[in-house]
Every structure is written in C-alpha cells, then in structure tokens.
Design a binder for these strands. Structure first.
Length: 928
DNA sequence: TTTCTGGAACCAGTA
DNA sequence: AATACTGGTTCCAGA
C-alpha cells in the first residue's frame, strides 16, 4: 500500500520539481567530475535562492525598507562587477549582504516556480492540515502539503526539534502582527527588481505572507492560480516517506516505501507529513548531485555580492527602518515573513503579539501540544524558569533587525561579542527521526561559551543562536541544519526557540549578573533531509557534502539614542556528518602558511583523522581550475598521529619564482577522502619580505600576521592569549573605533568571529566603508585559515580597486582567506564573489573561516619543534588534538619588517601583472 | 524512562 | 553491465 501511495505522490511531485531540476541540471553540466566529489557546494547559480540560502532575499528584506534606491539591475550588476560596486561594497555593507540578487533577475522561470505558493493559504492551512495528515495515509495522498519549506518556512514544523516552528508561524498571525505593519511604512519603496512582478495591491506586497504571489514574480497573472497549482505542484501531498529522490534520500525513500529496514516507514509517512521539511516538489530526478564548478561558483558568489551591495546601499539610505516589502519576491518575503511570526521577532505590540501568538498557537494547534515533540508554541511556553523573563520586551525585537544572512561585526564601539570557548570541530547532528544527539560541546568537554563585552547596562539582553554555513561564501543560515534546543537536567542555560526567516533561532539570555556570558549547553544541531530542503522552492544549495556549519551568535543592543547595534560572532566550523567526521581528514591548523619556493621546511598540521598513509598534496591551479602543478609532500610517517601530521614542504616547481605563488594543499586519506584545501604560499627565495611603501598599517599587518599566524586557525579561542591586535576589527578599523581599546585585553576573537563592527545606523555603515580595505588586509592574517575543498582552487581574491599597491594585493590574497570568516566577509564580500582571481576557487565547499596568513614572515617549524608540538598536543588532556599554544609557531616566528632587498624590476613587473590581472578580470565581469 | 551516543545497516547514486 | 564506493538516512543497542 505504501508503495502505491508513493507512486502517486511522486508523480505529483515531479511536476513541482521540474523547473528546479532543470536548472540544476544546467549547473550540473558545468561541473567536472573531479570537483564533484569535493564540491558540495551548494549553490546553483541558475536557480533563485529564495530561502535562507538566498542571501539576496534577506538583503532585499532589509533593503526594501530603505527605499527604492536600488534597482534590480544594480543588484545584478553589483554581483558581477565588484569594481563598480567596490566603493559601495567596500563599505561595511558589502560584506553584509551576501545575496543572490542577481539570481532574481535571472531566469524568471524560477521565480514563477516560486510563486507557486499560495503560501498564505498554504500556511494557514498547513497547520490544520498537519493534523489531518498525521492522522492517516489518506490524508497524505490527498492533502496538499502546506509547508514544504520546512524549517525555512516558518509554517513548517520540525518534528525533531519541535513542532513548534510550524504552528506559530502560521501566516495569519504573522501578518497581522509585526511585519505587516512594516509594509505600510512610508519608506516602502517598490522593489524595483525585475524579479518582482508587477505589484499587486500594495497591501499584498507588504504582507509577506498573504501575498505570496503578489510581490513575487509569481504574482503575475499567469501565476496567479497558484494556489491551486501549488497544491498540485508545489505542494503535492507528499507523505513524509515519499521523500524525493534525492541522492541522499535513498534511505529515506526506502523507509517510506517500506523497503529496507525502515520499519518506520508507515508511521513515517504520517510523520513525514507533519514534517515541515517535506519537499513540496520532489523531483523525479531526485536531487541531483550538483557540484558547483568554479565558474558556477563565481557566478553565484557574485550574485550574493550584488545583493549585498544593494542591501548596503539601501541600508545607507535608511536609518535602520525596515520596510518589508514591496519588491521582494513573494517567495522571498514569504520566507522571511513566515518566520516572522515568531513571537520574539515581532516588533510592535510586543506584549500583545506575544500573547496573541500564543493564543493563536494554542487554538490552531491544540493537537500539536499533545505531540511528543515540542511544537513551536510549546517550546515557547516551555521555556525553563529562569531569572530572565522572556516575556520582557526585547529591545531587539524589531523588524529592522538584520536578516540572518547579513554579515555583522563582532564588535562595535564598546561592545564586543566573543566566543570564549569554541565548539568542537565535530558534532554529529541528529535527524528528525533520531533522538537528540545532545548539545554541541566544546573541545574541552564543556560547552561553548559566548560573552558580550562592553555592555554596562543592567538590562539583560538576548543572545540569538542559529546554525550558519561554513563554506567560503558569506555566512548565512544553513539550509540543511537547524539549531535544536536541548533541555534536561544537564542543561543549565535557559533558552527558547523562535523561527526567523525559515531558520530556527535559539534565544538565550545574556545577563549582567553573569557578566553577559552564556554557556551554550542548550544547543544541538538538527539535520534536515537533503531531499526535503533541496526540493524546496527557492532552495539552491545542495545538502550533499554540505555538512559543515557554524554556530552563529547575535546580540542586538539598543542604545540610548534608539539605535540598535547588532553584533555577530560565528564559531569555528563544525562537521556535522557522522561519516565525514569519521573519515575525512580535517586540517584545523597549519604551522606555517608560506615558505621559500625551495621548500624543505617542515610544517605541522593539526587536525583530525590523519593516518599513517595520509598524503599531503600541494596543488597549484590556474584560474580556470586546471592543474598547473601538483606534487606530493613528504610526510613524516613516524610522527603521524590522528591529530597531527608533519610534512616537509616540497619545493615549488619554479624555485626561482620572483613573486609569491599561492597554492593549495590538502591531506588525502584515500580516493575521496580529502581534507579541504589549505592555502599555502611559496615566496621568492630572495624576497623575504615585501614592502613597497611605508605604511603605517604595515606594522600592524605584519604584526598581526605573525601573531595570528601561529594560532590555530579554527580553534583559536579563548585559550589563546590575545594579541594586542587580536581582533582584526580593532586594528582594521582602528581609525573608526569600533572596538574599545580594552578589546586588546579581551580574549582573542576567533577568526570567524573576527568581524567588525556593525551598527545598523547608516552612520555606522559609512564609517566602515573606508575601513574595509584595511580591514581586509589586516584581517587576512588574522583569519588565518582558509580551507577549500580539493577540487576547487582557492584563490586569492582580487584586491579592491582602490588598493592596488603591490603590497595590498599580495595581502589581499591572503586576506581572501578571511573571507571565510564571517567577520572578514562582512567587509569583503565582494572579493570572494567577484574576484576574477578567485574564479578558480569557487569552491562551493564549506570552508573554514579564515585564511592563511600571507605573511612572508611566517616561519616554519623545525622538525624537532614540530615533533615537540605534536607530542605536546597529544598530551593535552581535553583534546588530544589540540595544539598547545606555546607550541605555536607564532612564538617562533620572527617578525621582520624589511625593505625589499632585491626588489628588482622583474619582481615589480610581476606584481604589476598581478594587479593588472586582478583588475582586468574584475572589470571584465559583466555587470549585467 | 528518556536522552545521548556510537555503530552500522540500507540504499540509491556514482565512479 | 557489473562492482565497488560514497554518503545520506534510519535503526539498534548500550550507557
């Protein structure tokens, strides 16, 4: 019986998925087989990323408020041309918004597809339907699934984490409350994006939920009948069990179908139905494994950049006021709004709304309460008793809060949000079908700790936590993972869940009495089925191999002047896949990131899953991705330990290179078991230091690079004493004091959290603009670590146009790594995306934040040192793999600031060449 | 019991 | 076309 049902379902599903599938195929063609294995990169440029994954959306969200200023075209263009946007982009905002704005422009086709939502209706019904669905198979077949979007869709309920999400998110309520009002804001300007079809009634547009169709492209008349269509196509009643044929879902399907061991299947169906994740449009093809080629990647990133720029512009024109809006593709808005209903996020009638929502939840979803799993409402109500009153109005509850995919700084003015204790690099996420796998833990065995410095008020704040991506693109909510609230005796920290833009947020009180410090022992990670997410409307990321996440913390501080300062800190990457965690080597730290082209020095790699048979391969790729050079480094087999690997840096092919050469290396445990790419730079034998002109920043740069260099890229956390310049922000933005001087004494920020300051006020943005370049350079070293998956070349990102000194450029490459870090990203979103040089790198892989310091000063470990370090690291109690700080190369590094000794014309020519190439390639990117 | 955890079976897509 | 991998997802069982 199940089988039969399944068949029916699938047929319907195929319809809905059709468009997306096509798009994916297109992209798929572009990728090379080789890269495929390693690039899980998710982005398919052709399809519009509407969900969380689509930064663009978010950007728009914010942007819209400000006004009309940005036209679609700008959005596009920006994506493609960094240069033009550079100024804009350079600003704080550039980085801020990783959007796929361009995507919007592209194939409207997609948009149409999205429009399918009669979301309003769907959502509204969803809750009710859920109940029904759960009750019987029949329902499954006949009912349309409201929320395919699952987690991203507020209406979707996550079985595992909580039914919660769904119920309260229901549209109706959301409309009425919070967001709806925004639409009416005078500031609303029509979103000019071409993507947006003719607006319907303004009201509709403004209402995210209701209007699904209106604002969105779908809204077009043609699409209008969407509700029905949605039901049929977009939201085919899909039994949970009938997971789309995603590659990954094989298991799931089988279960549903009753094949294999899944006993769960039958029940599973009903279960599935309730799951938010159900993919509305399962594609017959299943989810194609799409890897993104460099080219694709580039395109995608550009899109993000564009949107970021747009957002930035809008932001600049706004004063923190957010209008929802018009112009936002319905889907987009819908997504955001959907979640908006989340009580905590609502703005206005705080108290009332809250109450209203609760009521709503209860009324509409009484049954859910009975469900074993906590539902949204339940979760909300179930908040553990804590001194901190959740009901208390939260200053940050404002529509103007930045979207989750906005890149925010970790420090601003006196405030600094720090991750004092980083999470372990591995945490097996649990599926909805599994029980919780517990809270994310710290390396030491405890839990991550986050602290807000510089906040002297007595009013408690709320720390938000969501699961973000860990690839080289701008930080954004992860489509395939959601934070999961952990409760129990062992949990000491109060928390509650709220949905925001299809992403679940965990809100944790930050209390003055606790020094604004929170122990994150209440956050687990839920894995959503790839098939469910991939098939969701607007989702362009793929889940396969997209298993790295970061914990992203945010805090919104309302200042006396009424403005809100939002800070964000992202953790080091966390591998969430059981398999990957067990099999793939992970390089967390490298003792050096550069050496003379002659090689010969020893390098200590610290990480996980190193084997005696592990190989370390150095690779140089051209911009087009093809291999220019590849060689295997000699591994000291005798010293290999699971967490450390000592390799001899191989000589570069051209030992007389006159300019630094950026290459990559990875650790390989077998055919498909490679670590991500790590960056490495070969330096000209006789040009130890590159310094072409006196620059005050130079010192700091060099210093930073050195100091940071030795630190573990990912794990550098509290453990490490902070350098004066520990926080990139501090130095980068020195001129514009985001961070208090005291900052230096604060624990160093992790690369990922490094970012800068973010003040929602326009002023703040402006201030940041000038800094971005500096920041970039400076942050590069800080961010130290850059990982890219093999198969993708990682490249230096082009320097900003205004910084084309050779020095800057060289550093820019290094700093490119910083892109990985959320913080850095905020400043340079542009580089990664638009940089031509980076074209080769597009890895869609999750990369770790940070980039290798390009510092020419980097010193190499001597074998003995390496060994010592390795040993010491092994001896470490908590984490055997953790490299002792003292062993850090940094201590050994010698910072030498010298004038170029032999900077001959040839060298200069090379540098100029690099500059020219970068610039030309940048300009080459078509704006449109 | 319930919640965590670690392992491993299943399976479909890939190589 | 057959076989071995891969990696996602689900189950099982012990702590």
């Amino acid at each position: 019986m199940q089988d039969s049902l399944r068949v029916r379902v699938n047929s319907k599903l195929s319809f809905g998925a059709k468009k997306e599938r096509n798009l994916r195929f297109l992209t798929t063609d572009m990728k090379s087989a080789e890269e495929d294995a390693y690039s899980y990169a998710p982005n398919v440029s052709l399809s519009l990323p509407l969900g969380v994954g689509n930064p663009c959306l978010a950007a728009q969200y914010h942007t819209l408020q400000s006004g009309p200023v940005i036209s679609v075209s700008s959005c596009h263009q920006s994506s493609y041309s960094l240069q033009n946007d550079t100024h804009i982009a350079s600003g704080y905002y550039h980085g801020l918004k990783p959007n796929g704005a361009p995507a919007l422009e592209s194939p409207r086709i997609e948009i149409t597809a999205y429009s399918q939502y009669p979301e309003d209706e769907v959502e509204e019904r969803s809750s009710n339907e859920d109940h029904i669905i759960k009750r019987g198979v029949n329902s499954i077949v006949t009912l349309t699934l409201p929320n395919a979007d699952g987690y991203r869709d507020p209406s979707c309920l996550s079985p595992a984490s909580s039914l919660s999400s769904r119920s309260c998110n229901s549209d109706a309520s959301s409309y009425e409350s919070g967001f709806y009002n925004y639409d009416n804001s005078p500031q609303n300007s029509p979103w000019q994006s071409p993507c947006v079809s003719p607006r319907g009634p303004s009201m509709l547009l403004s209402c995210p939920h209701a209007t699904g169709p209106v604002g969105s492209p779908n809204h077009s008349p043609s699409t209008s009948p969407q509700i029905g269509a949605v039901a049929e196509i977009g939201w085919p009643a899909q039994p949970r069990g009938s997971r789309p044929n995603s590659p990954s879902c094989s298991g799931g399907v089988s279960s549903c179908s009753g094949i294999g061991k899944r006993k769960y299947s039958f029940n599973g169906n009903s279960y599935c139905q309730t799951s938010p994740n159900q993919s509305p449009t399962p594609s017959p093809y299943g989810s194609p494994r799409i890897s993104v080629t460099d080219e694709n990647w580039l395109a995608n990133t550009n899109q993000y950049t564009n949107s970021a720029i747009v957002a930035a512009i809008n932001a600049l024109t706004t004063d923190g006021v957010v209008d929802l809006g018009e112009g936002i593709p319905i889907k987009t808005r819908k997504t955001m709004l959907d979640n908006s209903p989340s009580m905590s996020l609502k703005v206005e009638p705080r108290g009332e709304e809250l109450g209203h929502e609760r009521e709503h939840c209860h009324e509409d979803y009484p049954n859910r309460m009975a469900l074993k799993k906590e539902n949204y409402c339940g979760g909300f109500l179930d908040v553990p008793q804590h001194p901190y009153s959740w009901s208390k109005p939260k200053p940050y509850l404002s529509p103007s809060l930045p979207a989750l995919d906005w890149q925010l700084p970790s420090c601003s003015g006196p405030y600094n949000l720090q991750i004092e204790v980083q999470p372990k690099s591995h945490h097996r996420a649990h599926y909805e079908t599994e029980g919780s796998r517990g809270a994310v833990k710290a390396l030491s065995g405890g839990h991550p700790v986050v602290q807000l410095y510089g906040y002297m008020e007595s009013e408690p704040l709320t720390l938000q936590l969501f699961i973000g991506t860990a690839d080289d693109r701008l930080l954004r909510p992860h489509a395939f993972y959601q934070v999961h609230r952990i409760t129990g005796k062992t949990v000491s920290t109060a928390s509650h869940e709220v949905m925001h833009s299809n992403s679940k947020l965990l809100e944790i009180p930050l209390l003055p009495e606790n020094n604004m410090k929170a122990i994150i022992d209440c956050a687990g990670i839920l894995k959503l089925r790839n098939s469910d997410i991939e098939l969701r409307k607007g989702e362009t990321d793929i889940g396969r191999k997209n298993t790295r996440v970061r914990l992203v913390f945010r805090v919104h501080i309302t200042q006396p002047n009424g403005r809100t300062v939002s800070l964000q800190a992202a953790s080091n990457p966390i591998e969430c896949s059981q398999r990957s965690a067990q099999e793939l080597p992970l390089v967390e730290k490298q003792s050096v990131d550069s050496s003379p082209a002659t090689g010969g020095k020893m390098m200590l790699l610290t990480g996980l899953n190193f084997l005696p048979e592990s190989k370390v391969v150095f690779v140089e790729k051209a911009q087009d991705g093809h291999h220019l050079w590849e060689t295997e480094a000699k591994v000291d087999k005798d010293s290999v330990k699971p967490c450390t690997l000592v390799v001899e840096i191989p000589p570069y092919k051209n030992q007389r290179t006159s300019s630094p050469v950026h290459v990559n290396f990875y650790v390989c445990n077998g055919k498909r078991k490679r670590s991500q790419y790590q960056r490495f730079t070969y330096l000209p034998p006789n040009v130890p230091i590159i310094k072409t002109e006196p620059n005050d920043d130079y010192d700091s740069l060099g210093t930073v690079g050195l100091s940071m260099h030795s630190k573990p890229y990912y794990n550098q956390t509290r453990l490490t004493p902070v350098m004066p310049v520990a926080d990139p922000d501090a130095c980068l933005v020195g001129a514009y004091p985001p961070c208090p001087p005291s900052h230096a004494t604060m624990p160093s920020s992790s690369p990922s959290s490094s970012p800068t300051l973010h003040d929602l006020s326009p002023v703040a943005y402006i201030k940041c603009l000038p800094n971005s370049p500096t920041h970039t350079t400076a942050s590069g070293p800080m961010a130290s670590h850059f990982q890219e998956s093999p198969g993708h070349t990682n490249l230096g990102h082009p320097p900003s146009p205004d910084h084309n000194s050779s020095l800057e450029i060289l550093h820019s490459h290094g700093s490119s790594n910083s892109l990985n870090s959320p913080g850095a990203q905020s400043y340079h979103p542009i580089y990664p995306n638009s940089s031509p040089s980076s074209s080769s790198s597009p890895a869609s892989h999750p990369s770790t934040p940070g980039g290798p310091a390009e510092s020419p000063f980097a010193s190499a470990y001597s074998p003995s040192q390496v060994q010592a370090a390795a040993n010491s690291s092994q001896n470490k109690g908590n984490s055997p793999c953790q490299l002792p700080e003292d062993a850090s190369p940094s201590s050994m590094t010698i910072a030498v600031k010298q004038e170029p000794q032999e900077l001959d014309q040839m060298y200069l020519d090379d540098v100029n060449e690099i500059i020219r190439n970068d610039l030309s390639s940048i300009s080459v990117h078509p704006h449109a």
